[in-house]
Structures are given as C-alpha cells and as structure tokens.
C-alpha cells in the first residue's frame, strides 16, 4: 500500500466521530426516534462507535443493526471474485424509525443504493440518513451524505482507506495510490 497522505490521525478520528454523533443528535432532536445501521464490514465498526457515543451523550439505549448488502449488489453477475456473505442482522422493526445508515467511504453511491433497497425490503422507515467517515467524490448515482467526517477530493487512481483499531490496529484515514486494477 503506497500511502500518499495521512489525512486523519487517531485523535482526529475520535474528534471527528464525536462531531458526527452530535450532528446526528442535533438533526434528529435527540436519539429517541433514531436507529443506527452499519454496512458491514467497516461501517459496522463505525456504527458501533457512533452508537456508543450517542448513548453516552443521551443516556438512552439505542437500537443498532448491521446490513450486508451483497445480495443487493448490481455487479454480482460480473464480479470476478464472489464475495462472502456475512449476513444482515437487524432485529428491530425499521418502520417509522429515522435510520442513520453508516459506512466508511462514500464513492460511487452504488453500495448506498443497494443498502436503501435492502432497508426498504425490511419495512418503511420515516427517514433514512447517511453518515460516512470520508466522501471521496466520483458519484455515479444521485446520492448525497447527510453527515460527512471529511470531504476528500481524489483522482480516480487514488483510493481512500479508513482504518479502524478493531480490524487494522489503528484509527486513521489514508489517501493511497490504487493498486493495479482498473480505475
């Protein structure tokens, strides 16, 4: 991995998540009606952190679920490597909730499109809002995040990596050179 820049370091990561937690609470006037849904794998970790911060601020249990959008991907038939299913785990009724969808990087918007379709199959939420750690641009669908950790303008041959302690041993946001492959 050829790192071009370390955009957010560990203390910055924590402060950024804390700001997102407050923004989510401000928009929804508290945590009463919201539920957090993370997109596996890294979105799940970030969703857990955000949920914990929101609970600590509000002193109220928060519903949290995880979404595996693999079955809803639009590139299933021409994807060369078959992805492993990790499973969706949303044990509450999404109907009437303000769902805060959480992912690490917002790029083409195709993952979010799949996630929206899957959530709608589970029920009829009042709203779905999107929170991401990094928005790197290059959207292919008309999708926009409600809560953004950091806007990072990129070229197509760059990639944004969000690292989390639970998987990678450290919290960071990196700008890296794309390894081989197509842009």
């Amino acid at each position: 991995m050829n790192i071009k820049a370390r955009i957010i370091d560990e203390p910055g990561f924590e402060r950024m998540l804390r700001r997102l937690a407050h923004e989510i609470l401000e928009r929804n006037k508290g945590s009463e009606t919201i539920a957090i849904v993370g997109i596996v794998t890294r979105g799940e970790i970030i969703a857990r952190r955000l949920a914990k911060m929101i609970q600590d601020i509000e002193h109220r249990e928060l519903q949290i679920g995880f979404l595996d959008i693999t079955l809803y991907r639009d590139d299933l038939r021409d994807n060369l490597k078959q992805p492993i299913l990790r499973g969706t785990d949303i044990s509450f009724d999404v109907t009437g909730k303000n769902i805060v969808l959480v992912d690490d990087v917002l790029y083409t918007g195709r993952t979010v499109r799949a996630a929206l379709d899957e959530i709608v199959d589970l029920g009829r939420p009042a709203t779905i809002q999107l929170a991401v750690v990094a928005d790197r641009g290059h959207r292919e669908f008309p999708i926009k995040a409600d809560f953004v950790g950091k806007n990072i303008p990129t070229s197509p041959d760059e990639e944004v990596r969000v690292l989390v302690k639970e998987i990678d041993g450290e919290d960071a946001v990196l700008l890296v050179e794309r390894e081989g492959g197509k842009a």
């Binding site: 693999t70 299933l76 299913l85 199959d121």
Partner: peptide, 15 residues
C-alpha cells in the same frame, strides 16, 4: 444469511 431473509416481511432478494 438466507435463513435471515426468510424471516423478513419481504422474503425476496434481487441476487
């Protein structure tokens, strides 16, 4: 994962 899909209100995925 498909057992979970069968518990949903809409028991269908577009795969």
């Amino acid at each position: 994962s498909f057992r979970e899909v069968l518990e949903r209100p809409i028991k269908k995925v577009p795969s």
